[in-house]
Amino acid sequence: MSRFAQHEPTLPLQGRVRGALAFPDQTRFLPAMISDAPVLQQTSEPAESAAPSRLARYARPMLGILLPLILALAWELVVWLGWSNGRLVPPPSRVFATITELARSGELVPHIAATLWRVGLGFAFGVIAGTVLGAISGYWSLARRLLDPTVQALRAIPSLAWVPLFILWLGIFETSKIALIAVGVFFPVYLGVMGAILSVDRKIVEVGRTFRLSGFAMIRRILLPAVLPAYVVSLRVGLGLGWMFVVAAELIGASEGLGYLLLDGQQLGKPAQILAAIVIFAILGKLTDWLIEVAAAPFLRWQDAFGRAKGA
Protein backbone atom coordinates (compact mmCIF):
# COMPACT_ATOMS: atom_id res chain seq x y z
CA MET A 1 0.00 0.00 0.00
CA SER A 2 2.96 2.28 0.46
CA ARG A 3 3.19 2.73 -3.25
CA PHE A 4 0.10 4.89 -3.09
CA ALA A 5 1.87 7.14 -0.68
CA GLN A 6 4.48 7.86 -3.30
CA HIS A 7 1.83 9.49 -5.39
CA GLU A 8 1.16 12.01 -2.71
CA PRO A 9 0.97 15.35 -4.50
CA THR A 10 4.02 17.50 -4.23
CA LEU A 11 2.54 20.68 -5.58
CA PRO A 12 4.89 23.59 -5.21
CA LEU A 13 3.28 26.72 -3.87
CA GLN A 14 1.73 29.04 -6.45
CA GLY A 15 2.09 28.74 -10.17
CA ARG A 16 -0.68 27.20 -12.19
CA VAL A 17 1.52 25.51 -14.76
CA ARG A 18 4.10 24.44 -12.23
CA GLY A 19 1.28 23.02 -10.20
CA ALA A 20 0.17 20.85 -13.05
CA LEU A 21 3.64 19.84 -14.07
CA ALA A 22 4.38 18.59 -10.60
CA PHE A 23 2.42 15.49 -11.58
CA PRO A 24 4.63 14.00 -14.23
CA ASP A 25 2.33 11.02 -14.51
CA GLN A 26 -0.67 13.23 -15.02
CA THR A 27 0.27 14.96 -18.21
CA ARG A 28 -3.16 14.15 -19.48
CA PHE A 29 -4.29 17.19 -17.54
CA LEU A 30 -2.60 19.31 -20.14
CA PRO A 31 -4.40 18.00 -23.18
CA ALA A 32 -4.06 21.24 -25.05
CA MET A 33 -0.40 20.53 -25.48
CA ILE A 34 -0.99 17.35 -27.37
CA SER A 35 -0.09 17.98 -30.94
CA ASP A 36 2.13 16.60 -33.62
CA ALA A 37 4.85 19.18 -33.33
CA PRO A 38 7.11 19.56 -30.30
CA VAL A 39 5.45 22.12 -28.06
CA LEU A 40 8.11 24.77 -28.45
CA GLN A 41 8.00 24.53 -32.22
CA GLN A 42 4.29 25.09 -32.49
CA THR A 43 3.13 28.39 -33.81
CA SER A 44 0.54 30.16 -31.73
CA GLU A 45 -2.03 29.70 -34.48
CA PRO A 46 -2.46 26.07 -35.39
CA ALA A 47 -2.45 25.40 -39.09
CA GLU A 48 -6.18 25.86 -39.57
CA SER A 49 -6.04 25.10 -43.24
CA ALA A 50 -4.74 21.61 -42.68
CA ALA A 51 -7.07 20.74 -39.82
CA PRO A 52 -10.47 20.59 -41.57
CA SER A 53 -9.40 17.59 -43.61
CA ARG A 54 -11.54 14.79 -42.24
CA LEU A 55 -8.72 12.30 -42.38
CA ALA A 56 -6.53 14.48 -40.19
CA ARG A 57 -9.34 15.10 -37.74
CA TYR A 58 -10.08 11.46 -37.10
CA ALA A 59 -6.66 10.06 -37.75
CA ARG A 60 -4.95 11.95 -34.95
CA PRO A 61 -6.95 10.54 -32.00
CA MET A 62 -6.78 7.17 -33.69
CA LEU A 63 -3.01 7.35 -33.58
CA GLY A 64 -3.11 7.14 -29.81
CA ILE A 65 -5.28 4.04 -29.85
CA LEU A 66 -3.02 2.29 -32.32
CA LEU A 67 -0.37 1.05 -29.89
CA PRO A 68 -2.68 -0.46 -27.24
CA LEU A 69 -4.80 -1.94 -30.03
CA ILE A 70 -1.83 -3.66 -31.65
CA LEU A 71 -0.60 -4.96 -28.30
CA ALA A 72 -4.06 -6.26 -27.42
CA LEU A 73 -4.48 -7.97 -30.77
CA ALA A 74 -1.02 -9.43 -30.57
CA TRP A 75 -1.72 -10.88 -27.15
CA GLU A 76 -5.07 -12.18 -28.33
CA LEU A 77 -3.27 -13.91 -31.18
CA VAL A 78 -0.58 -15.36 -28.92
CA VAL A 79 -3.21 -16.93 -26.67
CA TRP A 80 -5.34 -18.05 -29.61
CA LEU A 81 -2.34 -19.76 -31.18
CA GLY A 82 -1.75 -21.53 -27.90
CA TRP A 83 1.71 -20.06 -27.32
CA SER A 84 0.49 -19.01 -23.90
CA ASN A 85 -2.45 -20.22 -21.87
CA GLY A 86 -3.30 -16.62 -20.88
CA ARG A 87 -4.21 -17.67 -17.39
CA LEU A 88 -2.37 -14.89 -15.52
CA VAL A 89 -2.65 -12.37 -18.35
CA PRO A 90 -6.01 -13.05 -19.91
CA PRO A 91 -6.51 -11.92 -23.51
CA PRO A 92 -8.78 -8.95 -24.26
CA SER A 93 -11.62 -11.18 -25.36
CA ARG A 94 -11.76 -12.86 -21.95
CA VAL A 95 -11.62 -9.50 -20.15
CA PHE A 96 -14.45 -8.27 -22.32
CA ALA A 97 -16.40 -11.46 -21.68
CA THR A 98 -15.94 -10.92 -17.94
CA ILE A 99 -17.34 -7.41 -18.21
CA THR A 100 -20.40 -8.54 -20.14
CA GLU A 101 -20.86 -11.43 -17.74
CA LEU A 102 -20.75 -9.06 -14.76
CA ALA A 103 -23.17 -6.78 -16.54
CA ARG A 104 -25.59 -9.57 -17.36
CA SER A 105 -25.63 -10.89 -13.82
CA GLY A 106 -26.59 -7.40 -12.66
CA GLU A 107 -23.49 -7.09 -10.46
CA LEU A 108 -21.67 -4.50 -12.49
CA VAL A 109 -24.02 -1.56 -12.13
CA PRO A 110 -24.14 -1.61 -8.29
CA HIS A 111 -20.35 -1.83 -8.18
CA ILE A 112 -19.94 1.11 -10.51
CA ALA A 113 -22.64 3.08 -8.73
CA ALA A 114 -21.02 2.50 -5.33
CA THR A 115 -17.64 3.69 -6.56
CA LEU A 116 -19.05 6.67 -8.43
CA TRP A 117 -21.07 7.67 -5.38
CA ARG A 118 -17.96 7.59 -3.17
CA VAL A 119 -15.83 9.52 -5.62
CA GLY A 120 -18.62 12.01 -6.22
CA LEU A 121 -19.23 12.74 -2.56
CA GLY A 122 -15.55 12.78 -1.64
CA PHE A 123 -14.80 15.02 -4.60
CA ALA A 124 -17.62 17.39 -3.68
CA PHE A 125 -16.49 17.74 -0.05
CA GLY A 126 -12.83 18.04 -1.02
CA VAL A 127 -13.57 20.68 -3.65
CA ILE A 128 -15.78 22.71 -1.34
CA ALA A 129 -13.26 22.69 1.49
CA GLY A 130 -10.30 23.26 -0.81
CA THR A 131 -12.00 26.11 -2.64
CA VAL A 132 -13.19 27.91 0.48
CA LEU A 133 -9.94 27.60 2.41
CA GLY A 134 -7.82 28.22 -0.68
CA ALA A 135 -9.80 31.35 -1.49
CA ILE A 136 -9.50 32.63 2.07
CA SER A 137 -5.76 31.98 2.14
CA GLY A 138 -5.24 33.51 -1.26
CA TYR A 139 -7.32 36.59 -0.68
CA TRP A 140 -6.48 37.43 2.88
CA SER A 141 -2.82 37.42 3.80
CA LEU A 142 -3.43 37.28 7.54
CA ALA A 143 -5.44 34.10 7.07
CA ARG A 144 -2.71 32.72 4.86
CA ARG A 145 -0.10 33.28 7.55
CA LEU A 146 -2.39 31.69 10.08
CA LEU A 147 -3.71 28.80 8.05
CA ASP A 148 -1.23 27.89 5.37
CA PRO A 149 1.61 26.52 7.53
CA THR A 150 -0.81 24.09 9.15
CA VAL A 151 -2.25 22.98 5.83
CA GLN A 152 1.23 22.56 4.39
CA ALA A 153 2.25 20.48 7.40
CA LEU A 154 -0.82 18.28 7.01
CA ARG A 155 -0.05 17.93 3.34
CA ALA A 156 3.33 16.48 4.21
CA ILE A 157 1.57 13.52 5.81
CA PRO A 158 0.96 10.74 3.29
CA SER A 159 -2.83 10.77 3.12
CA LEU A 160 -3.12 7.03 3.56
CA ALA A 161 -1.63 7.42 7.00
CA TRP A 162 -5.00 8.78 8.02
CA VAL A 163 -6.75 5.54 7.20
CA PRO A 164 -6.49 3.83 10.61
CA LEU A 165 -7.58 7.01 12.35
CA PHE A 166 -10.50 7.56 10.00
CA ILE A 167 -11.61 3.99 10.54
CA LEU A 168 -11.44 4.43 14.30
CA TRP A 169 -13.26 7.74 14.19
CA LEU A 170 -15.73 7.22 11.41
CA GLY A 171 -16.14 3.46 11.21
CA ILE A 172 -15.28 1.02 8.49
CA PHE A 173 -18.21 2.00 6.28
CA GLU A 174 -18.87 4.83 3.85
CA THR A 175 -17.94 7.84 5.98
CA SER A 176 -14.29 6.96 6.39
CA LYS A 177 -13.93 6.18 2.69
CA ILE A 178 -15.48 9.45 1.63
CA ALA A 179 -13.34 11.33 4.14
CA LEU A 180 -10.20 9.76 2.71
CA ILE A 181 -11.17 10.67 -0.85
CA ALA A 182 -12.04 14.21 0.25
CA VAL A 183 -8.62 14.57 1.85
CA GLY A 184 -6.98 13.50 -1.39
CA VAL A 185 -9.01 15.97 -3.42
CA PHE A 186 -8.61 18.81 -0.93
CA PHE A 187 -4.90 19.55 -1.27
CA PRO A 188 -4.53 20.11 -5.00
CA VAL A 189 -7.69 22.23 -5.03
CA TYR A 190 -6.57 24.25 -2.03
CA LEU A 191 -3.12 24.87 -3.52
CA GLY A 192 -4.54 25.56 -6.95
CA VAL A 193 -7.01 28.15 -5.74
CA MET A 194 -4.58 29.88 -3.43
CA GLY A 195 -1.79 29.91 -6.01
CA ALA A 196 -4.13 31.17 -8.69
CA ILE A 197 -5.35 34.04 -6.56
CA LEU A 198 -1.83 34.96 -5.52
CA SER A 199 -0.66 35.04 -9.11
CA VAL A 200 -3.46 37.19 -10.50
CA ASP A 201 -1.82 39.90 -12.56
CA ARG A 202 -1.59 43.06 -10.47
CA LYS A 203 -1.73 45.13 -13.62
CA ILE A 204 -5.17 43.85 -14.42
CA VAL A 205 -6.35 44.37 -10.86
CA GLU A 206 -5.22 47.95 -11.32
CA VAL A 207 -7.53 48.28 -14.31
CA GLY A 208 -10.36 47.28 -11.99
CA ARG A 209 -9.23 49.91 -9.51
CA THR A 210 -9.16 52.69 -12.07
CA PHE A 211 -12.78 51.85 -12.87
CA ARG A 212 -13.48 51.97 -9.13
CA LEU A 213 -14.84 48.46 -8.79
CA SER A 214 -16.11 47.65 -5.32
CA GLY A 215 -14.65 44.66 -3.51
CA PHE A 216 -17.43 42.40 -4.67
CA ALA A 217 -17.36 43.62 -8.27
CA MET A 218 -13.60 43.21 -8.27
CA ILE A 219 -13.99 39.56 -7.28
CA ARG A 220 -16.75 38.89 -9.79
CA ARG A 221 -15.38 40.79 -12.76
CA ILE A 222 -11.61 40.44 -12.35
CA LEU A 223 -10.62 37.80 -9.83
CA LEU A 224 -12.98 34.96 -10.76
CA PRO A 225 -12.33 35.00 -14.50
CA ALA A 226 -8.60 35.37 -13.92
CA VAL A 227 -8.51 32.41 -11.56
CA LEU A 228 -10.76 30.08 -13.53
CA PRO A 229 -8.20 28.40 -15.83
CA ALA A 230 -5.97 27.39 -12.93
CA TYR A 231 -9.03 26.35 -10.95
CA VAL A 232 -10.14 23.96 -13.67
CA VAL A 233 -6.68 22.42 -13.76
CA SER A 234 -6.74 21.94 -9.99
CA LEU A 235 -10.19 20.34 -10.20
CA ARG A 236 -8.92 17.87 -12.75
CA VAL A 237 -5.85 17.07 -10.68
CA GLY A 238 -8.12 16.69 -7.65
CA LEU A 239 -10.43 14.35 -9.50
CA GLY A 240 -7.51 12.21 -10.56
CA LEU A 241 -6.48 11.88 -6.91
CA GLY A 242 -10.08 11.15 -5.98
CA TRP A 243 -10.02 8.13 -8.29
CA MET A 244 -6.72 7.05 -6.84
CA PHE A 245 -7.98 7.24 -3.28
CA VAL A 246 -11.25 5.47 -3.97
CA VAL A 247 -9.22 2.42 -4.95
CA ALA A 248 -7.23 2.67 -1.74
CA ALA A 249 -10.39 3.09 0.29
CA GLU A 250 -12.12 0.14 -1.35
CA LEU A 251 -9.11 -2.10 -1.06
CA ILE A 252 -9.11 -1.52 2.68
CA GLY A 253 -12.51 -2.98 3.13
CA ALA A 254 -15.63 -2.85 1.05
CA SER A 255 -18.37 -5.22 0.07
CA GLU A 256 -19.06 -3.51 -3.21
CA GLY A 257 -17.38 -1.15 -5.60
CA LEU A 258 -14.82 -1.52 -8.35
CA GLY A 259 -12.05 -1.69 -5.77
CA TYR A 260 -13.84 -4.64 -4.21
CA LEU A 261 -13.87 -6.31 -7.63
CA LEU A 262 -10.10 -5.89 -7.72
CA LEU A 263 -9.64 -7.45 -4.30
CA ASP A 264 -12.15 -10.19 -4.99
CA GLY A 265 -10.38 -10.99 -8.24
CA GLN A 266 -7.07 -11.25 -6.45
CA GLN A 267 -8.35 -13.44 -3.64
CA LEU A 268 -10.22 -15.78 -5.94
CA GLY A 269 -7.50 -15.81 -8.56
CA LYS A 270 -9.53 -14.19 -11.34
CA PRO A 271 -7.12 -11.94 -13.24
CA ALA A 272 -9.74 -11.28 -15.91
CA GLN A 273 -11.95 -9.68 -13.27
CA ILE A 274 -9.07 -7.50 -12.05
CA LEU A 275 -8.35 -6.35 -15.57
CA ALA A 276 -12.04 -5.74 -16.14
CA ALA A 277 -12.18 -3.47 -13.09
CA ILE A 278 -9.04 -1.67 -14.24
CA VAL A 279 -10.51 -1.07 -17.69
CA ILE A 280 -13.68 0.33 -16.15
CA PHE A 281 -11.63 2.58 -13.86
CA ALA A 282 -9.79 3.90 -16.89
CA ILE A 283 -13.03 4.58 -18.76
CA LEU A 284 -14.71 6.27 -15.81
CA GLY A 285 -11.64 8.32 -14.98
CA LYS A 286 -11.29 9.58 -18.50
CA LEU A 287 -15.03 10.22 -18.77
CA THR A 288 -15.34 12.28 -15.59
CA ASP A 289 -12.22 14.23 -16.47
CA TRP A 290 -13.70 14.94 -19.86
CA LEU A 291 -16.91 16.13 -18.21
CA ILE A 292 -15.02 18.78 -16.27
CA GLU A 293 -13.23 19.83 -19.43
CA VAL A 294 -16.45 20.11 -21.38
CA ALA A 295 -18.24 21.97 -18.59
CA ALA A 296 -15.42 24.50 -18.34
CA ALA A 297 -14.86 24.93 -22.07
CA PRO A 298 -17.46 27.67 -22.65
CA PHE A 299 -15.82 29.82 -19.96
CA LEU A 300 -12.32 29.31 -21.27
CA ARG A 301 -12.85 29.99 -24.93
CA TRP A 302 -10.79 33.14 -24.62
CA GLN A 303 -7.65 31.27 -23.73
CA ASP A 304 -4.73 31.31 -26.07
CA ALA A 305 -3.92 27.65 -25.60
CA PHE A 306 -1.53 25.67 -27.75
CA GLY A 307 -3.35 23.83 -30.47
CA ARG A 308 -6.67 24.84 -28.88
CA ALA A 309 -7.56 21.49 -27.30
CA LYS A 310 -8.01 19.95 -30.69
CA GLY A 311 -5.81 17.01 -29.94
CA ALA A 312 -7.60 16.22 -26.68
Partner: peptide, 17 residues
Amino acid sequence: PHAKIGIIFQEPRLLPW
Protein backbone atom coordinates in the same frame (compact mmCIF):
# COMPACT_ATOMS: atom_id res chain seq x y z
CA PRO B 1 -9.42 56.61 -8.49
CA HIS B 2 -11.95 59.12 -9.69
CA ALA B 3 -14.71 58.84 -12.27
CA LYS B 4 -13.49 61.93 -14.08
CA ILE B 5 -9.92 60.65 -14.44
CA GLY B 6 -9.00 57.89 -16.84
CA ILE B 7 -5.63 56.30 -17.41
CA ILE B 8 -3.96 54.42 -20.25
CA PHE B 9 -0.89 52.38 -19.46
CA GLN B 10 2.10 51.43 -21.53
CA GLU B 11 0.53 47.99 -22.10
CA PRO B 12 -3.08 47.80 -23.26
CA ARG B 13 -4.07 45.77 -20.17
CA LEU B 14 -7.18 44.43 -21.83
CA LEU B 15 -9.07 41.76 -19.95
CA PRO B 16 -8.32 38.61 -21.95
CA TRP B 17 -11.64 36.94 -21.08
